[in-house]
Structure formats: C-alpha cells, structure tokens
Nucleic acid binder design. Structure first.
Length: 273
DNA sequence: AGGTCGACCTGGCAGC
DNA sequence: TGCTGCCAGGTCGACC
C-alpha cells in the first residue's frame, strides 16, 4: 500500500509515540505475517525499549535495545498499517503492548491482504530486501548523473525503472505516475534514451513530488492510514493517478490508463512525450 | 543477464 | 440479493 511518503509519515508518528518506550507484551493474532518464528519474535522484542525508528525505502526499521540490540523490520506492502491507540478489528494481526501502568498503550499491526512481513534480526544485512535497495531519492547518490549512467543501456520504459527498487528506493506506482506527469515524460519512453535535461527533471521532480506528499502526510487511495488511523492529504494533489477519463490539469485533454509491467499507468498523452 | 509476468491474499465495487 | 470478474499502494521467484 504505502510508498515512501506514507511510510515516512508513519515513521514520524511512531517516533513521537514509541521512542524510549518498552514493549511489555506482544500478542500474535495471525502468525502468517511473521518471518521470524513466533516464539523467537515475541522473546526478542518483549521488554525491549525502542531506541530509534528509521525508514529505508518502504520498510520501517525499529531499533530495540535491552539485553541485546535487535531490529524489528516491518514491510507494510499493500495493505499493512501500524496504528497507535486503535481498536483491534478482524484485520489486526499483531498487537504490541507498549509501556506499563498509567502510560500503557497499544500499537496494532493491521493487514487486510496479509502481504506484509514483520521480522526481527540482529543484523540488518540479514534482510535481503534491504541489501538490494538502491539509493534513497533524497540521497546525494541519487542524482542526474547516476540516473543517466544507470539507464544508459536500459531497454525498459522509464516508468518500469522508477518502480525498480534496485534503481531507487521507495517510489511506487502512484508517485511514479505523478513524477512522470510533472516531467512531461511519457511513461513508455525508453530509459536508455534519456537526455541529461530529462534526467535532471526526473531527479528534481522525484524530490519535489515526494516532499509535497510527505508534507501532506501521504496519499490515501484505499487502505492507507497514518499511525493515528487518519487518511493522508496528498490525494487532493494527485494529478493523474486513478484519474482515467478526467481532464488533464495542464491541457484539459483526457487522462489515459494503460498497463505496464502488469500495473496501471495513468498519464496525459498530450503533455507527456 | 536483463526484463516481464504470475503468484501471493483479501475485499470492494461495477455490472449483470 | 447474489454472483462473477476485475482491480488494488509491493515484492519475489520462475521463466523467457
């Protein structure tokens, strides 16, 4: 579900709610979402205190300290949610009890489709997905030169490349469409044919779109909720995604939908060449 | 080797 | 109302 801006919003919320608090108890309702054996998962987190909450791509990394240091890695995938102070429902898979006595609270892991994954590791390099990730869009390593060099020999459409997390981490289907719209670039354009100016646009508009979305606390299409269960505000700012048939905000011609790499792409054929 | 495609799950919605 | 088919923000492994 969530892409970089949504996960970053959740990360900031969790930081306010969880930092330096202790997991007093972990209730596993549905072990299906665990990638660490249930008893190990509970044992590794119980009585640990949260030292840091980081994000890498679309993954959340909760650093927990106690007898030893462990990392809780959460990939929300399509429908995962981490909710503070929510009421458990039929999609609640894990309940984290936080704090003690008067300062008690709950953090729920909800996940309708159960694609999400939670694991506990002692060493982040044990998480294969993390080791495969390309640079963060806000990193200096993600720059026009990198984009040009990475794509030089590529025969893939630029949209597919933006979705490839080994190229750049955290961009998903919504933001890939929005970034290309702002660039005025067709999602079907071959990545290997980019000019330096176009690589600069991709770099600049990636950062711009993602920053605006973080500012608006993410987009809510279907299932996305922040850590307090609220929808994000970027939905109103989305110009093409899921707007098939509506007028392009720039030229008024109808936005089209097509399918690339098995996923919907929305774009304006007039503005995006 | 690079790139594409189904599979993984559940549920909402449109159309009949 | 109920059924069917399609669609969904991600990721991986099988396959071409």
């Amino acid at each position: 579900m969530p892409e970089l801006p949504e996960v970053e919003t959740i990360r900031r919320d969790l930081e306010k709610a969880l930092l330096h608090k202790t997991f007093s108890q972990i209730e596993v309702i549905d072990p299906f979402v665990l990638r660490t054996p249930q008893d190990k998962f509970i044992d590794a987190l119980k009585k640990k205190s949260v030292e840091a909450i980081d994000r890498r791509g679309k993954a959340l990394i909760v650093t927990c300290v106690g007898r030893d240091k462990v990392y809780l890695v959460v990939q929300l995938m399509m429908t995962g949610q981490l909710i503070i102070e929510g009421v458990p429902d039929k999609h609640t898979r894990i309940i984290f009890h936080v704090g003690n006595g008067r300062d008690r609270s709950l953090m729920l892991y909800n996940d309708q489709r159960r694609f999400g994954q939670l694991r506990v590791v002692k060493d982040l390099s044990d998480v294969k997905h993390l080791s495969l990730l390309g640079p963060e869009p806000f990193d200096a390593a993600f720059n026009p030169k990198y984009i040009l060099e990475y794509t030089r020999h590529s025969k893939r459409p630029i949209k597919n490349l933006l979705l490839d997390h080994t190229f750049v981490a955290g961009i998903g289907n919504i933001y890939a469409c929005e970034i290309l719209f702002r660039c005025g670039l067709s999602p079907k354009r071959l990545a290997g044919r980019l000019s330096l100016a176009q690589a600069k646009d991709i770099h600049q508009y990636s950062i711009q779109v993602l920053n605006e979305a973080i500012e608006a606390r993410g987009s809510s299409m279907r299932n996305y909720r922040d850590a307090s269960g609220q929808e994000g505000g970027f939905k109103k700012l989305i110009r093409v995604y899921a707007r098939e048939g509506e007028n392009c905000p720039r030229c008024q011609s109808p936005i089209q939908r097509t399918v690339q790499a098995g996923r919907s792409t929305f774009y304006c054929p007039q503005c995006q060449k």
